[in-house]
Amino acid sequence: MRLQRLNRLGSVEQVMKDVKSQASKNAPASKQGGLNAEIQSRIGHQLRAMYDDVVRQGVPDRFAELIRKLDVPDTDPQVGSAGGPENDGRD
C-alpha cells in the first residue's frame, strides 16, 4: 500500500519534471521571504518559451493580407465597421 503510494507520487514527480524537487531542495532558505532565484529564472524561462513559441509562428497570411489591402485607402473594406468611432481602443 505504502509502496504503491510512493510509486504513484514518483510517477507524477517524474512527469512534472525534476524542477519541483530541485526547487524544494533549494527553497527552504528563502521560502518565507523573497523568491528563490532559481524558481524565478525558471518561471521567466517558461513564460518566454510559451510566448516565443507563438512569436516564431511569424505573421499568418490573413494579417499580412489585411495590412496589404488596407494600404490602399480607396479599397478600405472594413475600417470603421469593426467598432464605433467613439471607441478608439481606450478604456
Binding site: 510566448y51 516565443d52 507563438v54 512569436v55 511569424g58 505573421v59 499568418p60 494600404d71
Partner: peptide
Amino acid sequence: LRDDILASVPSLRAFAIS
C-alpha cells in the same frame, strides 16, 4: 510604417494568446 506594424504582429499574437 506598414512594415513595422507587420513586424509587430507575431508578438501581438503572443501577447493576445497569453
